[in-house]
């Protein structure tokens, strides 16, 4: 499930690179709104990675991104994302 498919439920969302996650569960246990859960599936290396099960609770605070020791997850606010997308689009086009 890519985050793009998520309707913009909460104030933000997370992006997970599941293939580099090592399943330490820092992001899951220290998420201030408990929006993340372990996946049922495994990644290539046999770890469960986080999934955004309660998208409506995610505020995009990026605390998971700060804690993740494996650079596997980061959070962003929809507001900032939309702005950046527009900016980049205007930079690339001309």
């Amino acid at each position: 499930m890519s985050a793009e498919d998520n309707a913009k439920k909460g104030k933000g969302t997370v992006f997970v690179r599941m293939e580099v996650c090592k399943g330490c569960s820092y992001c899951i246990d220290f998420c201030p709104t408990h929006a993340l859960d372990f996946s049922k599936e495994f990644n290539q290396k046999g770890y469960h990675f986080p999934v955004l099960n309660r998208a409506e609770d995610c505020t995009g605070c990026d605390l998971c991104g700060l804690f993740c020791p494996d650079f596997a997850i980061f959070g962003a606010r929809w507001k900032d994302l939309d702005e950046k997308r527009q900016q980049a689009a205007s930079q690339v086009e001309p």
Binding site: P69, F74, A76
Partner: peptide, 25 residues
Amino acid sequence: ETELENPVLPYLRQDRIPHIWCPGC
């Protein structure tokens, strides 16, 4: 960032990731 990549990645040698540190280190 628009390609929805982790903002830390541009500061890392991405060909070396995943790193060797243990889970939770």
